[in-house]
Amino acid sequence: LSCTTFNIHAPIYRRLGHDEESRESGSRDLWLSRNQKILDLLLQKNSSVVCLQEFWLANDELVQLYDRRLGDAGYKRYKLARTNDRGDGLLTAVKKDALRVLDCRELHFHDCGDRVAQVLHLKSNDKIGPREQQQVVLVNTHLIFPHASNYSLLRLRQAYKILKFVEHFKDERSLSHAPVLLCGDWNGSKRGQVYRFLRSQGFVSSYDMAREYWDIDADAHRWVSHRNHHGNVCGVDFIWLLNPTRQQPIPLRESWKRAVFGIIKLSFSASFGRDAFGFFLQGKEHVTDQDFHAAIKRVSLFEDLEGLSREEVEELIVAADLDANGVIDYKDFQRLLNHEKKSWLTRLFQGLHETKSLAGADLQVQHASFYPPQVEEGTWPESYSLSDHAPLTASFCP
Rank of each mutant, 00 (worst) to 15 (best):
Gly71Ile: 00
Ala93Leu: 06
Lys76Gln: 07
Leu90Gly: 08
Lys79Ile: 02
Thr83Gln: 07
Arg82Glu: 09
Gly87Ser: 08
Asp88Phe: 10
Glu54Gln: 01
Cys51Phe: 04
Ala58Ser: 10
Val50Glu: 03
Thr92Trp: 07
Cys51Glu: 06
Asp60Ser: 10
Ala81Gln: 01
Asp72Leu: 15
Asn59Asp: 13
Leu57Phe: 01
Leu90Asp: 07
Phe55His: 03
Asp85Asn: 03
Val50Ser: 11
Leu80Arg: 02
Leu62Ala: 06
Gln53Phe: 12
Phe55Thr: 03
Asp67His: 08
Asp67Ala: 14
Arg69Pro: 13
Val63Lys: 12
Arg82Gln: 11
Arg82Asp: 08
Lys79Gly: 09
Lys95Ile: 01
Lys76Gly: 14
Gly74Asp: 09
Ala81Val: 01
Glu54Arg: 01
Asp67Met: 07
Asp88Gly: 11
Leu70Val: 03
Gly71Gln: 04
Leu52Val: 06
Glu61Val: 09
Ala73Leu: 03
Lys76Pro: 12
Lys95Ala: 07
Leu80Cys: 08
Arg82Ile: 09
Leu62Asp: 06
Arg82Ala: 08
Lys95Met: 06
Tyr66Lys: 08
Val94Ser: 05
Ala58Met: 06
Leu91Asn: 10
Val50Ala: 08
Glu61Asn: 11
Thr92Ser: 12
Tyr66Trp: 14
Cys51Gly: 13
Asn84Thr: 08
Asn84Glu: 11
Leu70Ala: 05
Lys79Gln: 09
Asp67Trp: 01
Arg77Met: 14
Gly87Trp: 04
Asn59Arg: 10
Leu62Pro: 04
Leu80Thr: 01
Ala81Cys: 02
Gln64Thr: 02
Phe55Ser: 06
Trp56Ile: 10
Asn84Trp: 04
Arg68Glu: 13
Asp67Ile: 02
Leu90Phe: 14
Val50Leu: 15
Asp67Ser: 12
Phe55Lys: 05
Val63Ala: 09
Phe55Met: 10
Arg68Asn: 15
Gln64Gly: 11
Gly89Ile: 02
Asn84Lys: 07
Arg69His: 15
Gln64Met: 14
